[in-house]
Design a protein around this nucleic acid. Sequence first.
RNA 1: CGGGAUAUAGCUCAGCCUGGUAGAGCGCUUGCUUUGGGAGCAAGAUGUCGGAGGUUCGAAUCCUCUUGUCCCGACCA
Length: 502
Amino acid sequence: MSLKTKRIENYPAWYQCVVSEADMAENAASPGCMVIKPWGYGIWERIQSLMNEEFRETDHENAYFPLLIPFSFFKKEAEHVEGFAKEMAVVTHSKLQEVDGKLEPAGELEEPLIIRPTSETIIADSFAKWVKSYRDLPVLINQWANVVRWEMRPRLFLRTREFLWQEGHTAHASADEAETETKRMLEVYRKTCEEFLAMPVIEGVKPEYDKFPGAVDTYCIEAMMQDGKALQAGTSHYLGQNFAKSAGISFINKENKPEFAYTTSWGVSTRLIGGLIMTHADDEGMNVPPRIAPYQVILVPVIKKKEDEEKVMTYIRALSSELKSHTPFGEKIRIKVDARDKQSVDKFWEWTRKGAPIICEIGPRDIENNALMVKERLKVGQKEIVLKDEFVSSIEKRLADIQKEMFEKAKSRMENNIRNDITTPEEFKAYFANSNEWIEDGTQGKVAFVRGKWSGDEQTEEILKEMKIAIRCIPFNQTGTTGKCLLTGKEATLDVIYARSY
RNA sequence: CGGGAUAUAGCUCAGCCUGGUAGAGCGCUUGCUUUGGGAGCAAGAUGUCGGAGGUUCGAAUCCUCUUGUCCCGACCA
Protein backbone atom coordinates (compact mmCIF):
# COMPACT_ATOMS: atom_id res chain seq x y z
CA MET A 1 0.00 0.00 0.00
CA SER A 2 1.37 3.37 -0.90
CA LEU A 3 0.69 6.93 0.19
CA LYS A 4 -2.90 8.14 0.38
CA THR A 5 -2.38 10.56 -2.46
CA LYS A 6 -0.36 9.60 -5.50
CA ARG A 7 1.67 11.98 -7.61
CA ILE A 8 -0.50 11.48 -10.63
CA GLU A 9 -3.72 12.28 -8.72
CA ASN A 10 -2.80 15.52 -7.02
CA TYR A 11 0.79 16.61 -6.98
CA PRO A 12 0.59 19.33 -4.27
CA ALA A 13 -1.42 17.04 -1.97
CA TRP A 14 1.07 14.25 -2.62
CA TYR A 15 3.89 16.59 -1.60
CA GLN A 16 2.26 17.36 1.73
CA CYS A 17 1.55 13.70 2.22
CA VAL A 18 5.23 12.83 1.78
CA VAL A 19 6.33 15.50 4.26
CA SER A 20 3.98 14.22 6.95
CA GLU A 21 4.30 10.49 6.24
CA ALA A 22 8.10 10.74 6.21
CA ASP A 23 7.80 12.64 9.50
CA MET A 24 10.00 15.45 8.25
CA ALA A 25 8.07 18.55 9.31
CA GLU A 26 4.70 19.87 10.35
CA ASN A 27 2.88 23.16 10.62
CA ALA A 28 3.70 25.03 13.80
CA ALA A 29 1.32 26.84 16.13
CA SER A 30 2.80 30.09 14.82
CA PRO A 31 1.07 30.70 11.50
CA GLY A 32 3.15 30.17 8.40
CA CYS A 33 5.97 28.58 10.37
CA MET A 34 7.10 24.97 10.48
CA VAL A 35 8.44 22.55 13.02
CA ILE A 36 11.28 20.65 11.39
CA LYS A 37 11.23 17.17 12.88
CA PRO A 38 14.34 15.02 13.47
CA TRP A 39 14.32 13.24 10.10
CA GLY A 40 13.92 16.53 8.20
CA TYR A 41 16.36 18.36 10.42
CA GLY A 42 18.83 15.47 10.12
CA ILE A 43 18.84 16.04 6.37
CA TRP A 44 19.48 19.73 6.94
CA GLU A 45 22.37 18.89 9.29
CA ARG A 46 23.87 16.71 6.59
CA ILE A 47 23.57 19.58 4.11
CA GLN A 48 25.22 21.87 6.66
CA SER A 49 28.05 19.53 7.35
CA LEU A 50 28.85 18.86 3.69
CA MET A 51 28.57 22.53 2.77
CA ASN A 52 30.74 23.61 5.68
CA GLU A 53 33.48 21.45 4.24
CA GLU A 54 33.04 23.12 0.87
CA PHE A 55 33.15 26.55 2.48
CA ARG A 56 36.33 25.68 4.33
CA GLU A 57 37.87 24.41 1.09
CA THR A 58 37.13 27.80 -0.45
CA ASP A 59 38.59 29.72 2.52
CA HIS A 60 35.34 30.93 4.02
CA GLU A 61 34.79 31.18 7.77
CA ASN A 62 31.57 30.97 9.72
CA ALA A 63 30.43 33.85 11.89
CA TYR A 64 27.16 35.10 13.33
CA PHE A 65 25.36 38.41 12.97
CA PRO A 66 22.24 39.53 14.85
CA LEU A 67 18.66 38.58 14.08
CA LEU A 68 17.50 42.15 14.71
CA ILE A 69 18.53 44.85 12.29
CA PRO A 70 18.18 48.58 13.02
CA PHE A 71 15.36 50.04 10.93
CA SER A 72 17.63 52.80 9.64
CA PHE A 73 19.83 50.27 7.85
CA PHE A 74 17.01 49.56 5.48
CA LYS A 75 16.80 53.12 4.30
CA LYS A 76 20.29 52.96 2.86
CA GLU A 77 20.10 50.78 -0.23
CA ALA A 78 17.00 51.96 -2.09
CA GLU A 79 16.42 48.97 -4.39
CA HIS A 80 17.12 46.51 -1.63
CA VAL A 81 14.55 48.13 0.65
CA GLU A 82 11.93 48.23 -2.05
CA GLY A 83 12.47 44.55 -2.76
CA PHE A 84 11.90 43.43 0.80
CA ALA A 85 9.60 46.14 2.21
CA LYS A 86 6.40 44.17 1.71
CA GLU A 87 7.52 41.15 3.67
CA MET A 88 9.36 42.41 6.70
CA ALA A 89 8.54 41.58 10.31
CA VAL A 90 9.00 44.69 12.44
CA VAL A 91 9.71 44.71 16.18
CA THR A 92 8.23 47.82 17.73
CA HIS A 93 7.91 47.04 21.46
CA SER A 94 10.22 45.77 24.17
CA LYS A 95 7.85 44.28 26.72
CA LEU A 96 4.36 43.25 27.71
CA GLN A 97 2.40 44.81 30.50
CA GLU A 98 -0.93 44.08 32.08
CA VAL A 99 -3.65 46.62 31.39
CA ASP A 100 -7.14 45.86 32.77
CA GLY A 101 -6.14 42.24 33.19
CA LYS A 102 -4.94 41.94 29.62
CA LEU A 103 -1.37 41.74 28.41
CA GLU A 104 -0.48 44.45 25.96
CA PRO A 105 2.72 45.36 24.15
CA ALA A 106 4.46 48.20 25.91
CA GLY A 107 7.74 50.03 25.89
CA GLU A 108 7.57 51.24 22.31
CA LEU A 109 11.02 51.37 20.76
CA GLU A 110 12.42 54.68 19.62
CA GLU A 111 13.72 52.98 16.49
CA PRO A 112 11.95 49.81 15.37
CA LEU A 113 14.02 46.73 14.65
CA ILE A 114 13.61 44.56 11.57
CA ILE A 115 13.82 40.79 11.88
CA ARG A 116 16.37 39.96 9.17
CA PRO A 117 14.85 38.94 5.84
CA THR A 118 18.52 38.67 4.74
CA SER A 119 21.64 40.19 6.26
CA GLU A 120 23.34 42.28 3.58
CA THR A 121 22.80 45.55 5.42
CA ILE A 122 23.99 44.55 8.87
CA ILE A 123 26.93 42.52 7.60
CA ALA A 124 28.00 45.36 5.31
CA ASP A 125 27.97 47.61 8.39
CA SER A 126 30.44 45.28 10.11
CA PHE A 127 32.56 44.95 7.00
CA ALA A 128 32.84 48.74 6.92
CA LYS A 129 34.49 48.57 10.34
CA TRP A 130 36.72 45.65 9.47
CA VAL A 131 38.07 46.91 6.20
CA LYS A 132 40.57 49.77 6.07
CA SER A 133 43.18 48.70 3.57
CA TYR A 134 43.42 46.47 0.50
CA ARG A 135 45.43 44.24 2.86
CA ASP A 136 42.21 43.51 4.80
CA LEU A 137 40.59 42.08 1.69
CA PRO A 138 39.07 39.78 0.78
CA VAL A 139 36.68 39.18 3.68
CA LEU A 140 35.07 35.77 3.24
CA ILE A 141 32.26 35.10 5.70
CA ASN A 142 29.37 32.64 5.92
CA GLN A 143 26.61 32.47 8.45
CA TRP A 144 24.01 29.78 9.21
CA ALA A 145 20.87 31.53 10.31
CA ASN A 146 17.13 31.78 10.33
CA VAL A 147 15.42 34.56 8.43
CA VAL A 148 11.85 35.83 8.33
CA ARG A 149 9.87 36.92 5.30
CA TRP A 150 6.17 37.53 5.83
CA GLU A 151 4.84 35.09 3.25
CA MET A 152 1.13 34.96 2.65
CA ARG A 153 0.94 31.48 1.21
CA PRO A 154 3.20 29.14 3.12
CA ARG A 155 4.14 25.58 2.13
CA LEU A 156 6.34 23.34 4.22
CA PHE A 157 10.00 23.65 3.19
CA LEU A 158 9.14 25.52 -0.02
CA ARG A 159 7.84 28.74 1.44
CA THR A 160 7.51 29.43 5.15
CA ARG A 161 7.64 32.68 7.09
CA GLU A 162 10.71 31.61 8.96
CA PHE A 163 13.28 29.45 7.24
CA LEU A 164 16.83 28.29 7.78
CA TRP A 165 19.61 29.04 5.37
CA GLN A 166 23.23 29.89 4.96
CA GLU A 167 24.20 33.26 3.63
CA GLY A 168 27.69 33.94 2.45
CA HIS A 169 28.93 37.53 2.36
CA THR A 170 32.23 38.59 0.94
CA ALA A 171 34.06 41.80 0.16
CA HIS A 172 36.82 42.16 -2.40
CA ALA A 173 39.34 44.68 -3.69
CA SER A 174 38.29 44.36 -7.33
CA ALA A 175 35.19 43.78 -9.39
CA ASP A 176 36.87 40.89 -11.17
CA GLU A 177 37.69 39.10 -7.98
CA ALA A 178 34.15 39.58 -6.64
CA GLU A 179 32.63 38.28 -9.86
CA THR A 180 34.90 35.25 -9.75
CA GLU A 181 33.80 34.64 -6.18
CA THR A 182 30.14 34.84 -7.19
CA LYS A 183 30.61 32.17 -9.82
CA ARG A 184 32.85 30.05 -7.63
CA MET A 185 30.12 29.81 -5.00
CA LEU A 186 27.51 29.02 -7.62
CA GLU A 187 29.73 26.09 -8.55
CA VAL A 188 29.78 25.00 -4.90
CA TYR A 189 25.98 25.05 -5.02
CA ARG A 190 25.93 23.03 -8.21
CA LYS A 191 28.20 20.46 -6.61
CA THR A 192 26.08 20.37 -3.45
CA CYS A 193 22.91 19.76 -5.42
CA GLU A 194 24.27 17.30 -7.94
CA GLU A 195 26.80 15.31 -5.91
CA PHE A 196 25.16 15.35 -2.49
CA LEU A 197 21.44 15.82 -3.12
CA ALA A 198 21.56 13.94 -6.44
CA MET A 199 19.52 16.79 -7.86
CA PRO A 200 20.65 17.96 -11.31
CA VAL A 201 20.58 21.70 -11.96
CA ILE A 202 20.97 24.22 -14.74
CA GLU A 203 23.35 27.08 -14.05
CA GLY A 204 22.72 30.53 -15.39
CA VAL A 205 22.09 34.18 -14.77
CA LYS A 206 18.75 35.79 -13.95
CA PRO A 207 17.26 38.27 -16.40
CA GLU A 208 17.62 41.93 -15.40
CA TYR A 209 14.09 42.27 -13.98
CA ASP A 210 14.43 39.20 -11.77
CA LYS A 211 17.64 40.07 -9.97
CA PHE A 212 18.08 40.15 -6.20
CA PRO A 213 17.14 43.64 -5.00
CA GLY A 214 20.38 45.62 -4.95
CA ALA A 215 22.44 43.19 -7.03
CA VAL A 216 24.35 43.91 -10.23
CA ASP A 217 24.06 40.29 -11.34
CA THR A 218 22.16 37.35 -9.88
CA TYR A 219 23.31 33.85 -10.78
CA CYS A 220 21.20 30.84 -9.99
CA ILE A 221 20.83 27.11 -10.25
CA GLU A 222 17.46 25.79 -11.36
CA ALA A 223 16.19 22.27 -10.79
CA MET A 224 13.30 20.45 -12.45
CA MET A 225 10.71 18.92 -10.16
CA GLN A 226 8.85 15.73 -11.05
CA ASP A 227 5.86 17.76 -12.19
CA GLY A 228 8.02 19.70 -14.63
CA LYS A 229 8.05 22.94 -12.67
CA ALA A 230 11.27 24.74 -11.91
CA LEU A 231 12.65 25.30 -8.44
CA GLN A 232 15.37 27.81 -7.74
CA ALA A 233 17.79 25.80 -5.65
CA GLY A 234 20.37 28.46 -4.92
CA THR A 235 21.45 31.98 -5.82
CA SER A 236 24.71 33.88 -5.87
CA HIS A 237 24.83 37.65 -6.28
CA TYR A 238 27.46 40.02 -7.48
CA LEU A 239 26.56 43.21 -5.65
CA GLY A 240 29.13 45.52 -7.22
CA GLN A 241 29.74 48.55 -5.02
CA ASN A 242 26.05 49.09 -4.19
CA PHE A 243 26.13 47.90 -0.60
CA ALA A 244 29.69 49.11 -0.07
CA LYS A 245 28.57 52.61 -0.95
CA SER A 246 25.50 52.65 1.26
CA ALA A 247 27.30 51.07 4.24
CA GLY A 248 30.67 52.74 3.67
CA ILE A 249 32.92 49.74 3.03
CA SER A 250 35.91 51.61 1.68
CA PHE A 251 39.60 50.83 1.68
CA ILE A 252 42.85 52.41 0.63
CA ASN A 253 43.96 50.63 -2.53
CA LYS A 254 47.45 49.86 -3.76
CA GLU A 255 47.58 53.26 -5.46
CA ASN A 256 46.97 54.81 -2.00
CA LYS A 257 43.52 56.00 -3.05
CA PRO A 258 40.16 55.35 -1.30
CA GLU A 259 37.92 52.92 -3.10
CA PHE A 260 34.64 51.19 -2.32
CA ALA A 261 34.86 47.42 -1.93
CA TYR A 262 33.08 44.97 -4.23
CA THR A 263 30.76 42.59 -2.40
CA THR A 264 28.94 39.34 -3.04
CA SER A 265 26.27 37.35 -1.27
CA TRP A 266 24.95 33.85 -1.86
CA GLY A 267 22.54 31.49 -0.17
CA VAL A 268 20.72 28.21 -0.10
CA SER A 269 17.87 27.42 2.26
CA THR A 270 15.81 24.61 3.74
CA ARG A 271 13.91 24.89 0.48
CA LEU A 272 16.52 22.46 -0.83
CA ILE A 273 14.71 19.81 1.20
CA GLY A 274 11.50 20.62 -0.67
CA GLY A 275 13.45 20.19 -3.88
CA LEU A 276 14.85 16.91 -2.64
CA ILE A 277 11.34 15.63 -2.01
CA MET A 278 10.05 16.68 -5.41
CA THR A 279 13.09 15.14 -7.09
CA HIS A 280 13.29 11.75 -5.39
CA ALA A 281 10.12 10.91 -3.48
CA ASP A 282 7.61 8.49 -5.00
CA ASP A 283 4.20 7.04 -4.21
CA GLU A 284 5.69 5.08 -1.30
CA GLY A 285 7.10 8.22 0.34
CA MET A 286 10.43 9.93 0.66
CA ASN A 287 13.68 8.66 -0.80
CA VAL A 288 16.87 10.20 0.54
CA PRO A 289 20.18 9.94 -1.31
CA PRO A 290 22.80 8.12 0.82
CA ARG A 291 25.15 11.09 1.04
CA ILE A 292 22.61 13.17 2.92
CA ALA A 293 20.54 10.48 4.61
CA PRO A 294 20.71 10.92 8.39
CA TYR A 295 20.91 7.12 8.52
CA GLN A 296 22.18 5.18 5.55
CA VAL A 297 21.50 1.68 6.85
CA ILE A 298 18.64 0.66 9.13
CA LEU A 299 18.98 -2.65 10.98
CA VAL A 300 15.61 -4.09 11.99
CA PRO A 301 15.50 -7.16 14.21
CA VAL A 302 12.84 -9.74 13.37
CA ILE A 303 12.12 -11.56 16.60
CA LYS A 304 9.57 -14.36 16.60
CA LYS A 305 10.07 -15.71 20.06
CA LYS A 306 11.26 -13.94 23.15
CA GLU A 307 14.13 -16.41 23.56
CA ASP A 308 15.53 -15.40 20.16
CA GLU A 309 15.87 -11.76 21.16
CA GLU A 310 19.31 -11.84 22.69
CA LYS A 311 20.75 -14.00 19.95
CA VAL A 312 19.39 -11.64 17.27
CA MET A 313 20.52 -8.49 19.04
CA THR A 314 24.02 -9.88 19.55
CA TYR A 315 24.22 -10.70 15.85
CA ILE A 316 22.99 -7.20 14.95
CA ARG A 317 25.50 -5.50 17.24
CA ALA A 318 28.28 -7.51 15.63
CA LEU A 319 27.02 -6.61 12.16
CA SER A 320 26.78 -2.96 13.14
CA SER A 321 30.33 -2.81 14.40
CA GLU A 322 31.62 -4.59 11.30
CA LEU A 323 29.82 -2.06 9.12
CA LYS A 324 31.36 0.77 11.12
CA SER A 325 34.80 -0.16 9.86
CA HIS A 326 33.66 1.10 6.46
CA THR A 327 33.65 4.72 5.33
CA PRO A 328 31.26 5.28 2.42
CA PHE A 329 32.01 8.54 0.57
CA GLY A 330 34.99 8.96 2.91
CA GLU A 331 32.78 9.59 5.92
CA LYS A 332 31.69 7.65 8.99
CA ILE A 333 28.87 5.29 8.08
CA ARG A 334 25.50 6.17 9.64
CA ILE A 335 23.65 3.14 11.01
CA LYS A 336 20.45 2.94 13.01
CA VAL A 337 19.54 -0.17 14.96
CA ASP A 338 15.78 0.05 15.31
CA ALA A 339 15.11 -2.02 18.42
CA ARG A 340 11.80 -0.37 19.28
CA ASP A 341 9.06 -2.60 20.61
CA LYS A 342 7.06 -2.61 17.41
CA GLN A 343 6.30 -5.07 14.68
CA SER A 344 9.19 -5.42 12.27
CA VAL A 345 6.90 -4.92 9.26
CA ASP A 346 5.68 -1.61 10.65
CA LYS A 347 9.25 -0.51 11.22
CA PHE A 348 10.16 -1.51 7.69
CA TRP A 349 7.38 0.57 6.18
CA GLU A 350 8.12 3.51 8.42
CA TRP A 351 11.73 3.63 7.19
CA THR A 352 10.48 3.12 3.65
CA ARG A 353 8.24 6.19 3.95
CA LYS A 354 11.15 8.12 5.43
CA GLY A 355 13.30 7.01 2.52
CA ALA A 356 16.24 5.42 4.30
CA PRO A 357 18.49 4.07 1.50
CA ILE A 358 19.01 0.53 2.85
CA ILE A 359 16.83 -1.37 5.29
CA CYS A 360 18.06 -4.72 6.61
CA GLU A 361 15.97 -7.25 8.45
CA ILE A 362 17.66 -9.80 10.63
CA GLY A 363 15.99 -12.79 12.23
CA PRO A 364 16.94 -16.23 13.59
CA ARG A 365 16.87 -17.79 10.14
CA ASP A 366 19.51 -15.32 8.93
CA ILE A 367 21.74 -16.06 11.86
CA GLU A 368 21.69 -19.77 10.96
CA ASN A 369 22.80 -18.89 7.44
CA ASN A 370 25.14 -16.10 8.54
CA ALA A 371 23.14 -13.82 6.29
CA LEU A 372 20.57 -10.98 6.35
CA MET A 373 17.69 -9.67 4.28
CA VAL A 374 18.51 -6.49 2.38
CA LYS A 375 16.01 -4.09 0.87
CA GLU A 376 16.99 -0.98 -1.01
CA ARG A 377 14.55 1.94 -0.97
CA LEU A 378 15.18 2.56 -4.64
CA LYS A 379 13.94 -0.95 -5.46
CA VAL A 380 10.94 -0.95 -3.19
CA GLY A 381 9.15 -4.33 -3.26
CA GLN A 382 12.35 -6.28 -3.92
CA LYS A 383 14.31 -8.19 -1.32
CA GLU A 384 17.50 -10.18 -1.34
CA ILE A 385 19.16 -12.55 1.12
CA VAL A 386 22.83 -11.68 1.29
CA LEU A 387 25.67 -13.35 3.21
CA LYS A 388 26.72 -11.08 6.04
CA ASP A 389 30.36 -10.82 5.00
CA GLU A 390 29.36 -10.11 1.47
CA PHE A 391 27.01 -7.35 2.58
CA VAL A 392 29.58 -5.76 4.87
CA SER A 393 32.29 -5.73 2.25
CA SER A 394 29.94 -4.36 -0.43
CA ILE A 395 28.34 -1.61 1.65
CA GLU A 396 30.40 1.27 0.26
CA LYS A 397 29.70 0.20 -3.30
CA ARG A 398 26.01 -0.31 -2.60
CA LEU A 399 25.62 3.19 -1.20
CA ALA A 400 27.68 4.70 -4.00
CA ASP A 401 25.58 2.87 -6.60
CA ILE A 402 22.34 4.12 -5.05
CA GLN A 403 23.64 7.69 -4.99
CA LYS A 404 24.67 7.40 -8.62
CA GLU A 405 21.45 5.81 -9.76
CA MET A 406 19.34 8.48 -8.04
CA PHE A 407 21.28 11.25 -9.73
CA GLU A 408 21.17 9.62 -13.13
CA LYS A 409 17.47 8.96 -12.90
CA ALA A 410 16.81 12.59 -12.04
CA LYS A 411 19.23 13.80 -14.66
CA SER A 412 17.73 11.84 -17.51
CA ARG A 413 14.28 12.97 -16.43
CA MET A 414 15.42 16.58 -16.61
CA GLU A 415 17.23 16.19 -19.91
CA ASN A 416 14.34 14.36 -21.54
CA ASN A 417 11.97 17.12 -20.54
CA ILE A 418 13.80 20.14 -21.84
CA ARG A 419 12.37 20.97 -25.25
CA ASN A 420 14.79 22.80 -27.51
CA ASP A 421 12.95 22.24 -30.76
CA ILE A 422 10.33 24.92 -30.15
CA THR A 423 11.11 27.82 -32.43
CA THR A 424 8.01 29.97 -32.83
CA PRO A 425 5.68 31.82 -30.43
CA GLU A 426 2.77 29.70 -31.74
CA GLU A 427 4.44 26.39 -30.88
CA PHE A 428 5.53 27.88 -27.58
CA LYS A 429 1.97 28.89 -26.67
CA ALA A 430 0.62 25.50 -27.70
CA TYR A 431 3.21 23.74 -25.57
CA PHE A 432 2.35 25.67 -22.41
CA ALA A 433 -1.40 25.53 -23.11
CA ASN A 434 -1.43 22.26 -21.17
CA SER A 435 -0.91 22.19 -17.46
CA ASN A 436 2.03 20.55 -15.77
CA GLU A 437 1.43 16.99 -14.68
CA TRP A 438 3.50 14.42 -12.98
CA ILE A 439 6.26 13.33 -15.32
CA GLU A 440 6.97 9.61 -15.32
CA ASP A 441 10.60 8.65 -15.34
CA GLY A 442 11.24 11.01 -18.16
CA THR A 443 11.01 8.64 -21.04
CA GLN A 444 8.07 10.55 -22.44
CA GLY A 445 8.10 14.31 -22.58
CA LYS A 446 5.51 16.35 -20.75
CA VAL A 447 5.07 20.03 -20.02
CA ALA A 448 8.28 21.12 -18.33
CA PHE A 449 11.15 23.31 -19.60
CA VAL A 450 11.61 24.99 -22.94
CA ARG A 451 15.03 26.14 -23.98
CA GLY A 452 14.65 28.81 -26.60
CA LYS A 453 15.30 32.34 -27.76
CA TRP A 454 14.48 35.53 -25.93
CA SER A 455 14.71 39.05 -27.31
CA GLY A 456 15.12 40.69 -23.92
CA ASP A 457 12.45 43.33 -24.72
CA GLU A 458 10.67 44.93 -21.81
CA GLN A 459 7.26 43.97 -23.17
CA THR A 460 8.12 40.29 -22.74
CA GLU A 461 7.80 40.61 -18.98
CA GLU A 462 4.11 41.33 -19.40
CA ILE A 463 3.60 38.41 -21.80
CA LEU A 464 5.29 36.05 -19.35
CA LYS A 465 3.09 37.25 -16.53
CA GLU A 466 -0.03 36.63 -18.56
CA MET A 467 1.10 33.16 -19.52
CA LYS A 468 2.26 32.43 -15.95
CA ILE A 469 5.59 31.34 -17.35
CA ALA A 470 8.93 32.52 -16.10
CA ILE A 471 12.36 32.86 -17.60
CA ARG A 472 14.19 30.78 -15.04
CA CYS A 473 17.64 31.70 -16.21
CA ILE A 474 19.92 32.54 -19.09
CA PRO A 475 22.08 29.40 -19.08
CA PHE A 476 25.86 29.73 -19.16
CA ASN A 477 26.27 27.48 -22.17
CA GLN A 478 24.89 29.68 -24.96
CA THR A 479 24.68 28.42 -28.53
CA GLY A 480 25.09 31.87 -30.05
CA THR A 481 22.71 31.05 -32.90
CA THR A 482 19.93 33.37 -33.98
CA GLY A 483 16.24 32.57 -34.08
CA LYS A 484 12.80 33.88 -33.20
CA CYS A 485 12.07 35.14 -29.70
CA LEU A 486 9.49 32.70 -28.38
CA LEU A 487 7.46 35.55 -26.89
CA THR A 488 7.58 38.26 -29.55
CA GLY A 489 8.76 36.50 -32.71
CA LYS A 490 11.53 39.06 -33.11
CA GLU A 491 15.03 38.01 -34.00
CA ALA A 492 17.03 37.02 -30.94
CA THR A 493 20.26 35.25 -30.05
CA LEU A 494 19.94 34.72 -26.30
CA ASP A 495 19.02 31.19 -25.13
CA VAL A 496 16.87 31.07 -22.00
CA ILE A 497 15.03 28.45 -19.95
CA TYR A 498 11.27 28.98 -19.89
CA ALA A 499 9.18 27.13 -17.30
CA ARG A 500 6.43 27.30 -14.76
CA SER A 501 7.92 27.61 -11.34
CA TYR A 502 7.54 27.26 -7.59
C1' C B 1 -3.59 40.77 1.14
C1' G B 2 -8.30 39.69 -2.32
C1' G B 3 -11.92 35.33 -3.93
C1' G B 4 -13.71 30.35 -2.58
C1' A B 5 -13.94 26.03 0.70
C1' U B 6 -13.43 24.33 5.52
C1' A B 7 -12.80 23.76 11.17
C1' U B 8 -16.16 17.73 15.75
C1' A B 9 -11.08 12.38 19.41
C1' G B 10 -3.99 11.77 17.63
C1' C B 11 -5.79 11.02 12.01
C1' U B 12 -10.02 10.64 8.21
C1' C B 13 -14.76 12.06 8.74
C1' A B 14 -20.47 11.46 10.16
C1' G B 15 -23.95 14.36 13.07
C1' C B 16 -25.95 20.49 11.63
C1' C B 17 -30.93 21.37 7.13
C1' U B 18 -35.45 20.22 11.31
C1' G B 19 -31.73 22.81 18.63
C1' G B 20 -32.87 18.04 23.49
C1' U B 21 -26.85 13.47 27.37
C1' A B 22 -20.77 13.49 21.66
C1' G B 23 -20.46 9.36 17.20
C1' A B 24 -17.82 5.77 13.53
C1' G B 25 -13.40 3.89 11.30
C1' C B 26 -8.26 4.05 11.80
C1' G B 27 -4.54 4.94 15.46
C1' C B 28 -3.37 4.52 20.93
C1' U B 29 -3.25 1.28 25.81
C1' U B 30 -3.75 -3.82 27.95
C1' G B 31 -4.12 -9.15 27.23
C1' C B 32 -3.91 -13.43 24.17
C1' U B 33 -2.88 -15.27 19.28
C1' U B 34 0.33 -13.92 15.26
C1' U B 35 4.97 -12.37 13.10
C1' G B 36 10.17 -13.20 6.62
C1' G B 37 5.89 -8.81 4.66
C1' G B 38 1.85 -2.70 5.83
C1' A B 39 -1.73 -8.68 11.28
C1' G B 40 -6.33 -11.15 14.16
C1' C B 41 -9.59 -11.40 18.42
C1' A B 42 -11.14 -9.28 23.08
C1' A B 43 -11.30 -5.36 26.51
C1' G B 44 -10.12 -0.13 27.50
C1' A B 45 -8.78 5.26 27.30
C1' U B 46 -9.47 9.75 24.59
C1' G B 47 -13.26 15.69 23.24
C1' U B 48 -14.03 23.43 26.28
C1' C B 49 -17.45 20.27 18.77
C1' G B 50 -11.29 26.33 16.37
C1' G B 51 -12.24 30.99 19.62
C1' A B 52 -15.53 35.15 21.43
C1' G B 53 -20.27 37.09 21.75
C1' G B 54 -25.65 36.57 20.87
C1' U B 55 -30.76 34.02 20.39
C1' U B 56 -33.00 30.08 23.56
C1' C B 57 -35.46 26.71 29.30
C1' G B 58 -31.58 24.27 26.37
C1' A B 59 -26.57 25.36 20.96
C1' A B 60 -21.71 21.01 17.70
C1' U B 61 -26.49 22.45 15.34
C1' C B 62 -29.41 29.10 14.43
C1' C B 63 -27.14 34.46 14.12
C1' U B 64 -22.77 37.98 14.42
C1' C B 65 -17.68 38.64 14.81
C1' U B 66 -12.85 36.44 14.91
C1' U B 67 -8.68 32.98 14.08
C1' G B 68 -6.35 28.83 11.70
C1' U B 69 -5.99 25.46 7.53
C1' C B 70 -6.56 24.15 2.22
C1' C B 71 -7.35 25.76 -3.01
C1' C B 72 -7.12 29.95 -6.69
C1' G B 73 -4.84 34.96 -7.50
C1' A B 74 -0.83 38.94 -6.27
C1' C B 75 4.27 38.28 -3.86
C1' C B 76 8.39 35.35 -2.89
C1' A B 77 14.52 31.35 -1.12
